[in-house]
Amino acid sequence: MRNWLRFGRARAAARGREAGGGEAKASRTGALVAFSRLGRPVWTPRDYAALAREGFGRNPVVYRAVRTISEAAASVPWLVFEDEHEIDDHPLARLLARPGGQRAGAELMEAVYGHLLVAGNAYLEAVGVDGEVRELHALRPDRMKVVPGADGWPSAYDYSVAGRSVRFAAESEAGVRPILHLRLFHPTDDHYGFAPIEAALTSLDIHNAAGAWAKALLDNSARPSGALVYSGGEGGNLSDEQFDRLKKELEEGFSGARNAGRPLLLEGGLDWRAMALTPRDMDFVEAKNLAAREIALAFGVPPMLLGIPGDNTYANYQEANRALWRQTVLPLVARTAAALSAWLAPAFDRPVRLSFDVDAVEALSTEREALWARVGAAGFIDDDEKRAAVGYGPRRGRD
């Protein structure tokens, strides 16, 4: 049976009260934010299911961008520090390696990063048993709703599935909060984050429409559409029976890929006139590639890594890969590490800080080798100072 967490050190100054027992601190604008929504869920202002379906589910650029970032970020090893000393075998490290259920630690974090990229929000649930955090679970953001309190900050979270809801308190009296809400910056929303996929919605529609147009063109024998013009007979018009027969013959005998190249036999008075623009006239391929580059830009993935032609920003693949790690992956991991540290630290008696091992990132090995070469050649510092400069502690037996 899962029990809510009631353990760890009490929060400093109990909900923001000053040490001298003064008046509780609160934002003067918070009540204005919650005035019209007090006690009611703040519903997500967009359709997450549509974003996931049209973006991640149907668009290969979005799918590959999300997978590239989330898999890379989830592969970064965690480091746990107590009082600035790295602890190899720490309960927090074991928890993140085996968060519970059927998921490994990398799989859990991949889901968290994926939710952030597709929805702009990610939620983690902490499960406590016998006074310890035993499990961490990633919750789907489309099922979670924020319930604001009188001070404008979230007072609870409602998680709904198939008409049934569970309410999680936003704060615990002491110890770890049951829910961690990670979100990307949103300029116009106080409670939810802004997903990169939303900034690329226009480009996403163009790219999907271009694919649908190409598919329809192939289904119609890879030929431009046109019109049959009748210029014979009295009155210059076909009878209803002739029109229906001609339409049926065209659909059954000359449409579709299996009828590609089949000659069209025209009776007297009928003439074929092409009407559609060619792909060259529509600049079809370049429009699709431009939309793909804009989607990759929104996610922070160099187009070269996604196989999108026309990108000359980076000289080679290695430079593009380093840019991905430096500008997109590592900042995402850093903000997640800071949020996890603040969330889970009250569960332990001593101050705990979560970090990550940049030296284990193979894509940055060239930069690491250059740094080691520069530090190793510096004759004005001793060996321990060199070790500190590259992120290592002093040698054993020395303070």
Rank of each mutant, 00 (worst) to 15 (best):
F254P: 00
I179D: 05
V285T: 10
A345C: 06
G391F: 08
R183P: 00
L218I: 07
Q102D: 14
Y123P: 04
L180Q: 15
V129R: 12
D83E: 15
T202L: 12
N289D: 12
D244I: 00
V358A: 14
E125N: 12
A377E: 13
W4D: 15
L305N: 09
A320P: 11
A104T: 14
Y157E: 05
S365T: 14
L306A: 08
L217P: 00
G175L: 04
R164L: 12
T328D: 08
P99F: 05
A199C: 02
M275W: 04
R94E: 15
G149I: 04
Q242A: 15
I197Y: 01
L124W: 06
G16R: 06
S160F: 05
A12S: 09
A14N: 09
V390E: 09
Y314S: 10
K386G: 06
G101E: 06
Y123A: 08
E385T: 11
A31Y: 07
L124V: 10
V176K: 07
R164Y: 06
T278W: 02
N289F: 11
S221A: 15
E132T: 12
K386W: 03
K145P: 00
V33W: 13
E198F: 00
G16W: 07
S172L: 02
D205L: 10
G307D: 06
R262M: 05
N59G: 05
E173T: 14
S225I: 01
A373Q: 15
S255A: 12
R9C: 02
A72G: 03
R258D: 10
V361F: 09
E251P: 00
V375R: 06
L139I: 10
A14T: 11
D190I: 00
L124P: 01
A200T: 02
R17W: 11
S70M: 08
V333W: 03
R37C: 01
D190E: 13
A291F: 01
A210D: 04
M275K: 11
A298M: 01
S355F: 05
A209N: 12
D205P: 00
